[in-house]
């Protein structure tokens, strides 16, 4: 465990609470992609399968895994019930099947080991790297976003960005290297680069998030 990883995990946790807070304060899920949320639930359910047999290995990991699965399921539940009037299937249209299919293909081609758990783990890593695309696509179509939504996206993007120095740290100091997670994590962070730029140049200077 190192500082980068702790900060990354906290950032991930904070992003989920910002999202729930956004829905509660605006009484709406407008601007949030249901497709991205469903992809994240798939990511957590396929990666955290080991919660059933490694519960005693690390209380920190196990509790975080439970929180990620349950809070994302709760977010989806709220979006499909309480706040469903704000859902806009006309805008949230990214072809999600390609993402799932592509992640599935990479998982079958490059797992660490051919076991159900390892292939699903690899699938979850690749799927996570692109799960934000429906959300970013939606943002591009609407051309603007509520400030609280941009804070959510920033915290979610910062989480994987913070994992990169964590991987470097582990590589140099612990001799630990996980090529699948590292390559996918770099791709995931790169997908956010446009968003990070606009967040930095507009939102942090008190302006509204608007695409040029």
């Amino acid at each position: 465990m190192n500082l980068f990883r702790i900060l990354g995990d906290l950032s991930h946790l904070v992003s989920i609470f910002i999202l729930l807070q956004k829905m509660r304060s605006t009484r709406s899920c407008a601007g949030i992609s249901l497709r991205t949320q469903i992809l994240y639930l798939m990511v957590y359910c396929t990666r955290y399968l080991d919660i059933f047999w490694t519960f005693n290995a690390s209380l920190y990991n196990s509790s975080m895994k439970l929180v990620f699965i349950l809070s994302t399921a709760y977010t989806i539940y709220l979006m499909r019930t309480v706040y469903k009037t704000a859902l806009d299937p006309q805008i949230d249209t990214f072809a999600t099947y390609y993402l799932v299919g592509g992640a599935g293909l990479l998982a079958v081609l490059f797992p660490y080991k051919y076991t159900v758990y390892e292939v699903l783990w690899s699938f979850s890593i690749w799927l996570e790297s692109v799960a934000i695309l429906p959300q970013l696509f939606m943002l591009q179509r609407t051309g603007e976003a509520e400030t609280i939504t941009t804070h959510y996206l920033f915290a979610l993007g910062a989480y994987r960005a913070l994992y990169i120095p964590n991987w470097l740290y582990r590589w140099f100091l612990e001799g630990h290297f996980d090529p699948i997670a590292t390559v996918a994590g770099i791709i995931q962070t790169l997908l956010y680069s446009d968003f990070f730029y606009i967040y930095y140049t507009k939102v942090l200077k008190g302006k509204k998030f608007e695409l040029p």
């Binding site: 080991d50 990620f68 076991t115």
Partner: peptide, 10 residues
Amino acid sequence: REAGKTHDEL
């Protein structure tokens, strides 16, 4: 590398 035992990150 022992797969399945090294996934200690979230």
